[in-house]
């Protein structure tokens, strides 16, 4: 099927916007994998929990979802820190496969707690700027999605700066490379693990704030985003920050275009085709370090 260039351009732009939010979610996942070498199955549930936090902040306290970044990002950092330090870490007993099950169990617990608390209803918030858009001639670009794009890229840049330029970042990188060696030089590995997990949680919290002005929340919605985030992490290279960002933008565009040319139900087709190709041809991902 042929489409006019305007629609294709609009779809690409739309893919970049969607991809930027995927990037934020994938960043948390890739960071945790890169340092702790665990796949956090509770990532989606944490995203959902953060979205509900934003929803409650708006519905009860009338706080703007963007202003909620200042509340939920530190809150989820603390939650993530506590979870890793006092729940996931101790329960792992040194085995990485245990962690997998612990995070899976956590995700089930969080989802069901949300289901019990909020029921399975779909909820959304209405903010005055939800429908404001820029007229680009060929399409209307949604302002909230543009904000989401800007904030996502900024957060990714800050995260990169943190890792590359600060002592804390150096410690995180040291632990990622060689935990035993890091411990020998006096780095508190448990603390660094927990900080990393906290950072991952803070990333999804920011993503939740960016999603809520235009999206909806229900107790299982996080999984819709996390599956695609897993793909992005593998595509970009497990543990790579630029990989996660570029991978996410790429996946966003591929998904948008395959949605347009096949149909929305088959939009994932293109994404998973790439996923399989990457696994076959370049298993360490586009930016991944050699194993």
């Amino acid at each position: 099927m042929m489409f006019s260039p305007e629609i294709v351009m609009a779809a690409v732009l739309n893919g970049v916007m969607t991809g930027s939010v995927y990037a934020l979610i994938a960043l948390g996942l890739t960071l945790v994998y890169g340092v702790l070498h665990i796949i956090n199955f509770a990532h989606g549930a944490m995203l959902t929990a953060a979205m509900f936090a934003v929803f409650v902040g708006h519905a009860v306290f009338r706080i703007d979802p963007y202003a909620m970044i200042a509340v939920v990002a530190p809150l989820f950092f603390a939650l993530g820190y506590a979870l890793q330090r006092w729940v996931i870490g101790p329960a792992a007993h040194g085995s990485e496969s245990n962690v997998l099950l612990v995070t899976l169990g956590l995700s089930i617990m969080i989802e069901n707690a949300l289901l019990a608390g909020f029921r399975s209803d779909t909820r959304s918030i209405d903010v005055p700027y939800a429908f404001s858009s820029l007229d680009l001639g060929f399409t209307f670009l949604s302002v909230p999605r543009l904000v989401a794009f800007g904030v996502s890229i900024a957060v990714a840049f800050l995260l990169w700066l943190l890792l590359a330029r600060t002592d804390a970042g150096k410690a995180i990188r040291a632990v990622a490379k060689e935990p035993t060696g890091a411990e020998l030089v006096g780095i508190r590995v448990e603390h660094v693990f927990a900080v990393t997990f906290g950072l991952g949680a803070a990333c999804v919290a920011v993503a939740a704030c960016l999603l809520m002005p235009t999206f909806y929340v229900s107790p299982r919605i996080g999984n819709a985003f996390v599956l695609v985030a897993f793909t992005i992490v593998v595509l970009g290279g497990m543990g790579s920050i630029p990989g996660a960002v570029l991978g996410a933008l790429f996946v966003g565009v591929v998904e948008s275009l395959s949605g347009l040319f096949f149909n929305e139900s088959l939009a994932q087709l293109g994404v998973f085709l790439i996923f399989i190709l990457v696994l076959l041809l370049r298993p360490r991902g586009l930016f991944g370090a050699k194993a």
């Binding site: 739309n14 985003f225 149909n263 929305e264």
Partner: peptide, 20 residues
Amino acid sequence: TLPHPTPARDMTNIALQIKA
């Protein structure tokens, strides 16, 4: 006829096609 999955993360493409 435009199908979409549930949950759908984005409806912009569908809206664009309706517009066209």
